[in-house]
Amino acid sequence: MFIFTAKVRKGRIVAVAAVAAACGLLWAATGLLGGGGAEAVAVIGPKGIKSNEDRVAYLQSYGWQVAPDPVSVEELIIPEEFDETYQEYLDLQSAQGFDLTDYCGKRVKRYTYEILNYPTGESGIQAGLLLYKNTVIGGDVLSPQLGGFIHGLSMPG
């Protein structure tokens, strides 16, 4: 039998315990997210969206299945100043972490895709992405029919 002794400072013991606790929490969180054999899908970051495949993958990361090609592609200019008619849309974007006021006066593209798996089974529902260069700066899901709806990119629960 061998006995080893070492002089360890209290700060190092606390640091090792903190790292061990963090690892344990990470392991537990991974188990909860992946429970039941289901894979957790992480939302792709808004930067580096260069191609149609990137845009489709971005929407898929929110749980949407979309037609492989956009229904429309439009070039828009974000207004220099927003009036009250834009406030609801700005609030919707802000709630998702997008700030369109950073892009006032900029030329952007809006890519619109048909959603194939809207939870209510409705057809004709569309997902729109606003891109400045290779960065998603806004997005929405909408029903273009008269009296339709609009909401953020997250799948309604």
Rank of each mutant, 00 (worst) to 15 (best):
S61R: 05
Y62P: 03
E84R: 12
I77R: 06
G63M: 02
P68G: 06
V43E: 10
P68E: 14
E53S: 09
G36A: 02
L90H: 06
V66D: 00
N52R: 12
D54A: 04
Y89T: 08
G31P: 06
I77L: 05
R55D: 01
S72D: 11
L32Q: 04
G45W: 01
S51W: 00
D54W: 05
S61F: 01
V66K: 01
T85S: 11
W64V: 08
A17E: 09
W27F: 11
G31I: 02
A22C: 10
V41L: 08
S61C: 11
G34W: 09
W27K: 02
G35V: 15
V41K: 13
S72Q: 09
R55I: 01
G48S: 11
N52D: 15
D69F: 15
D83N: 14
G45E: 03
A29E: 11
F82K: 06
K50T: 04
A29Q: 13
E81L: 11
K50G: 04
P70T: 10
V41T: 11
E74R: 10
G34I: 04
T30M: 13
S51D: 04
P46M: 02
D83Q: 14
Y62R: 04
P70F: 00
G31E: 04
Q65A: 15
R55Q: 10
D83A: 06
V73F: 05
K50H: 09
A21N: 08
I77C: 03
G36Y: 00
A22R: 05
A67L: 14
V56M: 04
A21R: 09
D54H: 03
W27P: 08
S51I: 07
V43N: 08
G63I: 01
T85E: 13
L33S: 08
G31Y: 06
A20L: 06
A21M: 14
P68F: 09
L25S: 09
Q60R: 13
D69G: 14
P68W: 08
G45H: 03
Q65K: 12
C23E: 05
S72I: 12
A28Q: 14
V41Q: 09
G45V: 12
A38W: 10
W64F: 08
V66W: 08
L76Y: 10
